[in-house]
Structure formats: C-alpha cells, structure tokens
Design a protein around this nucleic acid. Structure first.
Length: 425
RNA sequence: GUGGGUGUAGCUCAGCUGGCAGAGCGCUGGAUUGUGGCUCCAGAAGUCGAGGGUUCAAAUCCCUCCACCCACCCCA
C-alpha cells in the first residue's frame, strides 16, 4: 500500500477543524495588533539558512532537506521562516515603508529529524516578526499578544523568559562556563562532555539527574549582561509586571538558533510529551544586517519574533480544551422516496443559499435509515421532502434533538432553521 | 544518528504455556408500507507487517528485514 513518507502525515476531519480554529484565532489576534501577512517560498537557497540560522547548528548541519538543482545550485526546504522573512525585508527594503514592519506567516516547515510526539518532518508553524525597533515595549507587546492567543485557544501554558545578552556577553559567559566546567566535566554525562566543545550553553538544558547539582552551581548568564542589555531586560520585566503578564524567569533557557540575542522566551505546556515547547522566540538584532541590510538608518536591523508549532498547539488544545473540532451541520434534507431527489436537491440549495450547512440523504434508502444517518452526522434538523407535502408546497421540519416535527410552507424554511445557528454558536 | 515499545478486521484491541482467527465500536441489511437516537437479529470485512527457519501443526517459538510509536538528541 502507498503510504505517506516518514514524518509526514495527513490531517483529516474533524481534527482539521481545530487547525482552522487556531489559524482563524491567530489571524484575528494578529489583526488586532496591526500585523500584515507575508507568504514566502517553501524553497530557498541553502546559503540563506546557513547564514541566518547558523552553519554549525543542528538544524542546518544535519536536519535540512537539501538537494542540488539542475543548475548545481544548492536548495533547501525551509526549516523555519524567520530567515525568509528577513530576506524579504531586505530584498524589498521594507524599512522604507512607514512605521515598523509587522509581519506574520503560516505554513509548512521541514526538518529531517527522527519523528516523535509533537515532532514531524513536515510541520506547520505560525509566526510573527516585528522589524525596525529594539525597544523593550515591542518585546512586551509581542508577549502580550501571545498570551492573548493562548487564552483565546483555551490553553494552559507558561511563559518562560530569559535574556541571553548580546554576542559579546555570550563570549564572556562562554569563557566563564568553560572555566567553571573544566574541573567537573569528567563527572558529567557523555552528551554534556560533547556539548562542552560544541555548544556549552546547551549544557544548561541537560535533563540527566546526576548532572543537575553541577548545573545548578554554574554561573547564570544574567551576571554577564552588559549595562544596555541589563536595562533592556529590566524594562521588559517592568512592562510585563505592569501589564499583568505572568512569567517565570528561566536563567537556563537558551535558543538553538544562532541569530537570537537579548530577549529569549518560550511558552511551555504540560499537556505535551517531551516536546513541550508550544512556541519559542526572541530578539534577533543584527540578522537583517547580516543578510545585507544597510547600516543606516539606525535600528532597521533590530527585530524580534516568534514561531509556534501548530502540530503541538493542536495536541495541547485536544488535551487542555478537550476540543474535538466537529463542524456543526444545520440540516439534513431527506427525499422520502427516490422520486423526491430532485426536489430535495433544490430544497438543499435553498437552505445553503440562506447560509446553513446541509447534506442531502439518499432517497433510495428507507426513511428510517436516512433519519438514523442524519442523527449520526450530527444534523440539528431533518427536512423531510415527501410527495404528499410537496404537492401543497410544504415540507416537514424535524428537530432531531427534541424529536418534534411540524409541517411548514417550503418558502419559510430558512427562517425556521434560524435556531440551528444559535445552537452552533 | 542511538535506545525502548508496538505491528491481528476501517478504528481500539484481546488471543502469544503452539491445535479451526475473535470482541467492542464502525459499516451493510432486517425486526411488514412515510419517522432516527435504545434494543434485538443477520451479514460483509483480516495473505495475523514482510521474508525465512523449527514443527505433523506457527498470529503464537527462533532469525532477518520493514513500518509506526515513544524517548534520547534537537527544537516549534
């Protein structure tokens, strides 16, 4: 049998209704905060990602779907979208448009990892970026917007927040970490011994119980922030407190992409498995410059953004909100006898023209079977199109939940269906 | 890339001290003509993940492979 390839899957009803609910909510929340939509290609030059995300990162180093095009150029399916958004920002000189650049996107991303719960090779992200300002208030509004989205989707999620400083701060922090680890690294797990050389920050993320006492004693990055970074973080925290946005300081929170600096955050959910990050993001000042933006005017390459994993978000919605996603069906139009089929189809057109969702039964089947089907499909009303009533231009409208029915003039059908809408909302 | 778990009907799974392939749900039909949800009856549907081995006999024991899931890693 043909099968979807590893790590890629079909999304089916009723779950797809949940996806649409998330995407509708996200679009609405983004609209409230003045964001516009950007759609970028799924395929980009491999170089874009090695320059933006970092050639040494796992994502670029071993997780991209990369291939040689016929002209020998190297192309990759995008593993994330920030790089593309910033490329577009630079390519179209979006900073020359009035105001800050506020963009959101939605679409599939690709990483060739081993699949597990909440992690697939093709997955969907929704993200947003604010480019053109480094002010803490921008960071604040982004986080406020995200907590609104979390609330609107009925999720229980916790905001974890950190500042990872600027590159110079991290350089000093790296040195201090290495110095502190030198005497004790021999007693740590094999992964940490490897990370010591590849990416010492990741040691902070280690989950091996035996390593925890050592990790707890390591210096925190906070001590190494320079004055501007320190002040930026302090101001953001003041704004969060004033805005009533709850968060937990996460001094060990690091981000896996090279471009992040200063503000780093994620929303985690306990409803997920090991992959518990619903969304992650942070500030990435300087990335636009690295991708070719000019040096002036000042601030054009300052930016912050986030990406949320839709696949994980849906898992959390199913767990937290118990959401099943079933779309309400207003009416099932039932031809009583095959001879009534054409008339039933016409009635269904009339119902749909009035904005109600309707399906049509199979007139070849017995009335009882058709009613059974209508009930199972979750229809609010059954509309019986029978020969006797049809002759007088009338229909039978049956309320399936109440088990009551009455005969009505066919022309009044739409107004009698109105209660169906109230139930749906 | 590494480790563990699981593969039996459309779905969820039982059967695994070798002996005729099962249940629940779902699906189709019926319980007399144009009235559903409950109930009852009947039916369709499986090369038991694939290949090999042991045996009179393998879903069951052994080997190899494959797929999926979970975890590590990494990240959204």
């Amino acid at each position: 049998m043909m099968h979807a390839i590893k790590g890629m899957r079909d999304l089916l009803p009723p779950e797809t209704a949940l996806w649409r609910r998330l995407e509708d909510q996200a679009r609405e929340v983004f609209r409230l905060y003045g964001f516009g939509e950007i759609r970028t290609p799924v395929l980009e030059s491999t170089e874009l990602f090695s320059r933006a995300v970092g050639a040494e990162t796992d994502i670029v180093g071993k997780e991209m779907f990369t291939f040689q095009d016929r002209d020998d150029s190297s192309l990759s399916l995008r593993p994330e979208a920030t790089a593309s958004v910033v490329r577009a920002y630079v390519e179209h000189r979006l900073w020359e448009r009035p105001g800050l650049t506020r963009l959101y996107y939605q679409g599939p991303m690709f990483r060739r990892e081993r699949p597990q719960k909440g992690r697939y090779r093709q997955f969907s992200q929704i993200g947003a970026e604010v480019l053109g300002s480094g002010e803490p208030v921008v960071d604040y509004e982004l986080l406020e917007m995200l907590s609104l989205l979390v609330a609107r989707c009925g999720l229980r999620a916790e905001l974890r927040l950190n500042s990872i400083g600027c590159p110079a701060d991290r350089g000093r922090y790296h040195q201090a970490l290495r110095a502190a680890l030198e005497p004790v690294i021999g007693g740590m797990c094999a992964d940490c011994q490897r990370r010591m050389h590849t990416n010492p920050l990741r040691i902070l993320d280690c989950k091996v119980p035996g390593d925890q006492p050592i990790i707890a004693a390591l210096p925190a990055i906070e001590e190494f922030l320079d004055a501007p970074c320190r002040e930026h973080f302090a101001e953001l925290r003041r704004l969060l407190d004033a805005g009533g946005i709850a968060y937990e300081l996460a001094p060990r929170l690091v981000r896996g992409l090279d471009y992040y600096n200063r503000t780093a955050f994620e929303f985690v959910s306990s409803a997920l498995g090991a992959q518990n990050a619903l969304l992650g993001g942070g500030r990435y000042d300087g990335l636009a410059r690295a991708l070719g933006a000019p040096a002036s005017p000042a601030g054009i390459d300052q930016a912050i953004g986030f990406a949320l994993g839709e696949d994980r978000w849906i898992l959390a919605m199913q767990a937290d909100a118990g959401a099943a996603g079933q779309e309400p069906l207003d009416a099932c139009v039932i031809p009583v006898g095959a001879a009534m089929t054409a008339r039933a189809l016409s009635v269904a057109r009339q119902v749909r023209a009035a904005g109600f969702a309707a399906i049509v039964g199979d007139g070849a089947r017995k009335l009882g079977k058709q009613l059974e089907m209508a009930a199972r499909e979750g229809a609010r009303f059954a509309v019986l199109v029978g020969e006797q009533e049809a002759a007088q231009g009338r229909l039978i409208l049956r309320d399936l939940a109440a088990g009551e029915q009455r005969e009505i003039p066919a022309v009044q059908l739409a107004e009698h269906l109105a209660p169906a809408r109230e139930v749906a909302r």
